[in-house]
């Protein structure tokens, strides 16, 4: 297992280098960090000195290597938009997004496994058909639409119908101003964004788990377990589910890696200051320094979770672990 993990880590290193170089080059090619100086009266002079200060006059490869050295040390530069340290901005946004992903993934995984197991064990039952139908509805709903509908019905309308002072579920941020920590206020803020995120991912995972479970339920070793006299419940939850989780966990790990950069719409709708919002705001203002670090950090997460997917696969499947 250790050799397996070591090998996978070593494979990841060149991927990170190539990805970060390409991302660096693309951001350099598309965004001009001196663009905000163009309007000034001494534009030519100012731009020239700024380019020199930012080393933009050197070849991309040299710029990249300088940038990389600083990036590894945690010196990610200063935002052209907020004049704040980029490292602190990304760390703060990442923490917010991580909370959203954590709850969204937790709820989605539990629902998807429950749905998948039920649908497979009671294949073609009324509830199986219902879940299948709902899955396709969920897959067809874009998150920006679902998010807005959720705010309208579950936040605004609910408040009006019951004549509440405040909405039951908030639609802005993760806390009321001045409040922190894991408390009821937090849950009331989390409910709608987590629901929006869950709707995006639970349908796919649920379908996946159903297919995996159906596959496993007809496996010979499940028949063996039944022939031993193992009770049905235990056959399903021990012998079958343990095997059916292997593909789902792999898919989940891959999907989670993508989520770190992919919650742009959900975070924007619910005004949550996470990675998606940071990207959106930086993109609109052409904040190249933030964008370079942001893209590389999200790429790192994708590589990291690909690695975790492989490790989880080996951990769950002894055939991989011992070969």
């Amino acid at each position: 297992m250790l050799t397996y993990i070591t090998r996978r880590v070593l494979y990841s290193i060149p991927v990170i280098f190539v990805a970060s170089f390409l991302l660096f080059a693309f951001v350099r090619a598309t965004f001009d960090p001196t663009a905000h100086l163009r309007a000034s009266r001494t534009a030519a002079e100012a731009i020239k000195s700024e380019r020199k200060r930012l080393n933009l006059d050197k070849p991309t490869v040299v710029q990249y290597s300088d940038w990389l050295k600083k990036f590894v040390r945690g010196d990610w530069g200063t935002s052209e938009r907020t004049h704040e340290r980029v490292f602190a901005m990304i760390r703060r946004s990442l923490w917010v997004t991580t909370q959203l992903i954590f709850w969204g993934v937790l709820v989605s995984a539990l629902l998807a496994i429950a749905m998948g197991v039920y649908s497979a064990v009671r294949q073609y039952s009324a509830l199986d058909y219902t879940l299948t139908g709902l899955s396709f509805v969920a897959l067809a709903m874009p998150p920006f639409w679902f998010g807005l509908i959720a705010i309208q019905f579950l936040s605004a309308d609910l408040k009006n119908v019951f004549h509440l002072q405040e909405p039951l579920f908030y639609s802005i941020g993760l806390h009321k101003p001045g409040v922190t920590g894991l408390n009821v206020d937090y849950l009331r803020h989390l409910a709608l964004p987590v629901m929006t995120l869950t709707v995006q991912i639970v349908a796919g995972w649920g379908r996946y788990q159903r297919a995996a479970m159906l596959d496993v339920m007809s496996a010979d070793y499940v028949r063996t377990a039944r022939a031993k006299g193992v009770p049905r419940r235990r056959v399903i939850f021990k012998h079958a589910l343990r095997n059916a989780l292997i593909p789902l966990v792999t898919v989940m790990a891959l999907d989670i890696g993508v989520l770190f950069g992919g919650l742009i719409i959900t975070e924007t709708i619910f005004s949550i200051p996470g990675m998606g919002r940071l990207f959106f705001d930086s993109l609109l203002r052409g904040d190249a320094t933030v964008l370079v670090s942001w893209t590389v950090v999200t790429a790192l997460f994708i590589v990291l979770f690909n690695l975790l997917a492989d490790v989880a696969y080996g951990w769950l499947d002894p055939r991989i672990r011992f070969s």
Partner: peptide, 27 residues
């Protein structure tokens, strides 16, 4: 089902054809 469970594997047991597929790979 409960009555059959008490018989399966205890009074009447079965050996299957493909032992690799018939043994659970993860246990």
């Amino acid at each position: 089902e409960k009555e059959m469970q008490a018989i399966r594997g205890a009074r009447i047991a079965m050996i299957f054809q493909d032992a690799l597929a018939s043994l659970n790979p993860v246990f």
